[in-house]
C-alpha cells in the first residue's frame, strides 16, 4: 500500500489529476473515490473520461447507479468502456445486491465508483482516491491497494510531477 498526496487548489488541478489517472488506466482497473459532497469526485471522473476519449458528457449516476460509456473519439488510444457508479443513495448492505464484482472482475473496462466507502466488497486490486476539503482548497490522497494499482500510481505520480 503506497500513498501520494496532491493539492488541488483549482479546477484545472483536479482536471489534470483526472487526466493523469485516465492516461495510464487499463481495462480491468478499478478507481474507488471517497469523499464528502462537493470534494470533486464527479469532476475528477469527468476528467478521467475525457482522457479516455469518451464523447458523452459524464454525469453522476446518482439515480441510475451506473452509467456505461462505450463511445470514444476515433483517434483516442483508449477504446475500452468506462463504468461509472455512484453509491450515494445506497446503504452499505444494499451495495452487496448490485453484483458490482461482475464489473470489476470482467477485465473489460475502467470501473470508477463514487461513495466507495459504502462498499462491503472490494476489488482484489484497486486505486483509492480520497478527496477532502482543506480550508478553501481541495486535496487528494491516492492510495494503491495491490501490485497493479501500485504500478498505476507510480505512472500517475510521474505524470503529475
Amino acid at each position: 500500500m503506497e500513498a501520494f498526496d496532491v493539492d488541488l487548489p483549482t479546477l484545472q488541478a483536479t482536471n489534470r489529476l483526472g487526466e493523469c489517472i485516465g492516461r495510464f488506466a487499463l481495462p480491468g482497473d478499478a478507481l474507488l473515490l471517497i469523499g464528502e459532497l462537493g470534494t470533486g469526485k464527479t469532476t475528477l471522473t469527468q476528467a478521467v473520461a475525457r482522457s479516455l476519449g469518451i464523447l458523452d458528457k459524464v454525469v453522476s449516476p446518482t439515480f441510475t447507479l451506473v452509467n456505461e460509456y462505450r463511445e470514444h473519439a476515433s483517434d483516442s488510444p483508449k477504446q475500452f468502456p468506462l463504468f461509472h457508479f455512484d453509491l450515494y443513495r445506497l446503504e452499505s448492505a444494499q451495495t452487496d445486491e448490485l453484483g458490482l464484482w461482475e464489473y470489476w472482475e470482467g477485465n473489460r473496462g475502467l470501473v470508477v465508483i463514487e461513495w466507495a466507502e459504502r462498499l462491503l466488497d472490494h476489488p482484489d486490486d484497486f486505486l483509492e482516491v480520497e478527496l477532502f476539503h482543506a480550508g478553501e482548497e481541495r486535496r487528494a490522497r491516492l492510495i494503491s491497494h495491490g501490485e497493479r494499482s501500485f504500478a498505476w500510481l507510480k505512472e500517475i505520480v510521474s505524470c503529475w510531477s
Binding site: S92, A93, D96, A116, E117, L120, D121
Partner: peptide, 14 residues
C-alpha cells in the same frame, strides 16, 4: 431472487 447470504461484514473502508 439472489439467494445471497445476508452480509454481516462491515464496509471495507470502515
Amino acid at each position: 431472487d439472489y439467494q445471497r447470504l445476508p452480509s454481516m461484514v462491515v464496509a471495507w473502508k470502515k
